[in-house]
């Protein structure tokens, strides 16, 4: 039971990291990256290929993060000076290209993917390994959370949110909006790459069907539910994915409907819940909160 729980939590950590990355792009900067899953895949495949070819695991992970970030750069440069929709279209297309390339390229394993990827802390005994892995991953997630907060609570983060609300107004106040958008895109994608590297080195194999486009939309939905505070985005995504997984088993407990009916019913129910949530709490369950500012001056003392 305990290793199973540890594994669940570890996957939770990976999803949380994905949520933090997309939240930086979408929740804070307003960038609609519909190909987010591709950067997750790039991170996973890069780390897998590198370690399978003898590169040390840590070095491979760092390179995987850099690759995911670097690939985002030209996409951003090409599209971010255009209207917002172009980023959405281009990233969506990009993710499909990546998926189909992975599926059809022999040296990355094609549809079978890659197996035998070295485990995180592989040399450790199998009975303690899951817990050490979990501890390490949670520490990385905590570090990412702290760094993301530092960035978004700084004047830099304030510019990102200004751009999200009106890029034109931000430009008219002297902000070089394109540069900020590119940085947000690269950082968020690099985080997806990091999540991918951890994922590959945890489950030990990668294949194209693990990086289905629907994952991108799961995370978007998670952020909508949770709100654009870092906690909100992470927790919202975890709750949503957990709910999707949990309701999968409800079909087994003797409901008088077929498995496939149930799968569709589940989406219907989730859709309804989302509508209710959006009517009650449009900013999500844990929206981003601005620091209350109180004037501290002589007239306050008087």
């Amino acid at each position: 039971m305990a290793p199973y729980l540890a594994s669940l939590l570890l996957f939770g950590g990976i999803y949380a990291m994905l949520a933090l990355g997309l939240n930086l792009q979408w929740g804070h900067t307003g960038l609609v990256n519909l190909g987010f899953v591709a950067f997750f895949a790039l991170g996973a495949y890069s780390a897998a290929l590198l370690t399978l070819n003898g590169v040390p695991l840590l070095v491979a992970a760092v390179i995987a993060v850099v690759i995911a970030g670097l690939v985002a750069y030209p996409l951003g440069r090409l599209t971010l000076r255009l209207q917002d929709d172009y980023l959405a279209i281009v990233t969506f297309g990009f993710a499909e290209v990546v998926r189909i390339l992975l599926l059809n390229t022999r040296w990355v394993g094609g549809a079978d993917g890659l197996t035998g990827i070295p485990q995180l802390f592989g040399p450790l005994a199998a009975d303690v390994r899951p817990f050490i892995q979990l501890g390490a991953v949670l520490m990385v997630v905590a570090l990412v959370l702290v760094l993301a907060r530092r960035l978004t609570e700084s004047p830099y983060g304030r510019v990102l949110r200004a751009i999200r609300d009106s890029a034109e107004a931000a430009r008219s106040l002297g902000k070089e909006t394109e540069g900020y958008k590119v940085v947000a895109l690269v950082l968020g994608s690099a985080l997806a790459g990091l999540a991918g590297a951890i994922y590959a080195h945890y489950i030990g194999y990668v294949s194209p069907d693990q990086f289905d486009p629907s994952l991108t939309f799961l995370i978007f939905t998670g952020i909508v539910i949770g709100g654009s505070s870092h906690w909100g985005a992470a927790v919202g995504t975890l709750v949503f994915i957990a709910a999707m997984e949990a309701t999968r088993f409800l079909g087994d407990v003797g409901l008088p409907i077929s498995q496939s009916d149930f799968a569709q019913l589940r989406l219907l129910v989730i859709g309804l819940l989302l509508i209710v949530l959006m009517q009650r709490k449009r900013e999500g369950l844990w929206p981003y909160r601005h620091r209350e500012r109180v004037r501290v001056t002589r007239d306050a003392a008087a």
Binding site: S154, Y156, R158, S166, H290, R293
Partner: peptide, 29 residues
């Protein structure tokens, strides 16, 4: 008006301050 609608009023003003060091990526760290 093209305000930053989801920012507070005072943050709308603060974001407009010119040439802020805190708006440069490396300075943040």
């Amino acid at each position: 008006p093209r305000l930053f609608e989801r920012l507070s009023v005072i943050e709308n003003l603060m974001v407009a301050g010119p040439n802020q060091r805190g708006e440069r990526f490396w300075s943040v760290w």
